[in-house]
Amino acid sequence: MRCRKCKGKAVLDVPRHHTAFCKACLTEFVCAQVERAISEERMFTKADRVLVAVSGGKDSLSLLDILGKLGYQADAFYVDLGIGEYSRQSKAKVERYTSARGISLHVHELKEDEGAGINDLADLVHRPTCSVCGTLKRYHFNRTAVEKGYSVLATGHNLDDEAARLLGNVLHWQTEYLEKQGPTLPDSVEGFAKKVKPLYRLAEREIAAYAVVNKIDYIVEECPNAQGAKMLLYKDILNRLESESPGTKQAFYWGFLTRQKTDEQARPSMAEHDRAVLRPCVTCGQPTTSEICSYCKLMARAQKNGPTPVGS
């Protein structure tokens, strides 16, 4: 197979765009898609300081890499969940990547600050590990971005992640979640960081190929907690459809975004809605819809049930 752009030897076929790329043209394609996402969705500019939430996986490390290539000011933030060997390895990959390139890295240690790793915390509050993990990560991503003075928080969510999440939300008609599924969420209230997903135009396979071609050493292994078995099922179903008719995933998710934009003109904006319902948590001050935020509720419950004091 030949590269459609330069006729060199292709390393990846991209059926949804009826094309194939060599190494150099693949990197160019990926960077151009990210640049387009950033400008079309008004994510940030070169004057902004961006905090990238990294896990050691292909998406977040590639995102950091791409933003560096494009000349944005991006630092990294890693939450150490304390999941044995998996956390040790992923943290080592993040440290190696950032130190080799002189990128600032902020680390939050669950075992130090919450007093226990994610598995113990989930046991203490009797909730599924992945849901506790989600609450903790969302909380610390936002808090760290705001406290350390970053204007935007970026995550490595890609087209497959967003299409799978959309499928799940539509299957269960979780309309309240649908509103928050855009690639840019505003910093509507004090204490709320702007959140963006610059990889939403790229398929998971294209990003993995970018990582391999650019020799990014990422963790291939899955989280042992098998984060979201449902998500894997939705992704597999979407990829079956994609194999039969290339372009299905992007038609599904991007089509949803187009509809959402048309609807927005008729409804109050998300920022207005947020300002109406969010207020500071009485315990920690982070924005929440109830009196006490879900993080503080979780930690209070862990403390009550814990054999030893947990949290700070």
Partner: peptide, 26 residues
């Protein structure tokens, strides 16, 4: 080796390849 190969590539009997999953549950 260090390279990605496309679907039409002919693999020899003495080749060694890695099939890397790209789907993660995150």
């Amino acid at each position: 080796g260090d390279d990605l190969v496309t679907e039409d590539e002919l693999l020899k009997d003495e080749d060694r390849i890695e099939i890397r999953p790209v789907i993660s549950g995150g």
